[in-house]
Simulated assay, not measured.
Amino acid sequence: MIATLPRINELARKKVNQGLTAQEQQEQKQLREEYLQMIRGSMEATLLTTTVQDPEGNDVTPDKLKNIQS
């Protein structure tokens, strides 16, 4: 992620200032898709380790999430 983000930003700036070639547009699309896959994977991992508690401290994690976690 750290390696691709600067290139994504560089292509975004170039798109605004000069425009992109077809090859650069394809590269930008691919890099964005890879970045989104990493973010989604990270978010899923976070959700799989999450529990929900009410103000009294009772576990109210939805059953669907509990089933996925186990």
Results as ranks from 00 to 15, higher is better:
32 R>N: 13
32 R>K: 13
38 M>P: 00
17 N>K: 12
34 E>R: 07
22 A>H: 03
23 Q>N: 11
24 E>G: 03
31 L>I: 06
26 Q>M: 08
36 L>H: 09
30 Q>T: 15
30 Q>W: 08
34 E>N: 09
21 T>K: 02
26 Q>K: 11
28 Q>N: 09
43 M>H: 10
41 G>N: 12
23 Q>T: 15
42 S>P: 00
19 G>F: 04
22 A>M: 06
13 R>T: 08
44 E>V: 06
17 N>D: 15
20 L>A: 03
40 R>Y: 14
44 E>Q: 10
43 M>I: 15
21 T>F: 07
24 E>Q: 09
41 G>F: 04
12 A>D: 04
39 I>M: 11
40 R>D: 10
24 E>L: 05
11 L>W: 03
22 A>E: 15
21 T>S: 14
15 K>N: 12
29 K>S: 14
30 Q>M: 11
16 V>G: 00
36 L>P: 00
17 N>Y: 08
37 Q>K: 12
19 G>L: 03
36 L>D: 12
31 L>F: 06
33 E>D: 13
12 A>T: 10
35 Y>S: 05
44 E>Y: 12
11 L>H: 03
21 T>G: 10
36 L>F: 14
20 L>K: 02
37 Q>C: 02
23 Q>G: 10
42 S>Q: 15
13 R>N: 09
22 A>I: 04
30 Q>G: 01
43 M>T: 14
40 R>E: 13
39 I>S: 00
13 R>Y: 10
26 Q>Y: 09
31 L>C: 04
28 Q>W: 14
15 K>R: 14
11 L>T: 01
43 M>D: 10
37 Q>R: 11
35 Y>C: 02
43 M>K: 09
10 E>L: 07
37 Q>Y: 12
16 V>R: 09
31 L>Q: 02
27 E>Q: 09
14 K>V: 03
21 T>Y: 07
28 Q>I: 05
14 K>C: 02
33 E>V: 06
12 A>L: 13
40 R>C: 04
18 Q>M: 08
20 L>M: 04
26 Q>F: 11
11 L>V: 03
44 E>K: 07
39 I>F: 11
14 K>M: 03
42 S>C: 06
37 Q>S: 10
29 K>Q: 15
31 L>N: 03
44 E>R: 07
33 E>K: 08
20 L>S: 05
28 Q>D: 10
12 A>K: 13
34 E>G: 00
20 L>P: 02
13 R>V: 09
15 K>M: 08
18 Q>R: 06
19 G>V: 05
18 Q>N: 11
18 Q>C: 03
14 K>N: 04
32 R>G: 08
18 Q>V: 07
25 Q>L: 12
26 Q>R: 10
42 S>H: 13
24 E>N: 02
25 Q>H: 05
24 E>A: 01
36 L>S: 03
35 Y>K: 01
35 Y>I: 00
14 K>L: 06
30 Q>E: 15
16 V>Y: 09
35 Y>T: 00
27 E>K: 02
24 E>W: 04
28 Q>G: 01
22 A>Q: 12
25 Q>A: 09
15 K>Q: 13
43 M>S: 07
32 R>A: 08
32 R>C: 05
39 I>K: 06
15 K>T: 05
17 N>R: 13
40 R>A: 10
14 K>Y: 01
36 L>Q: 15
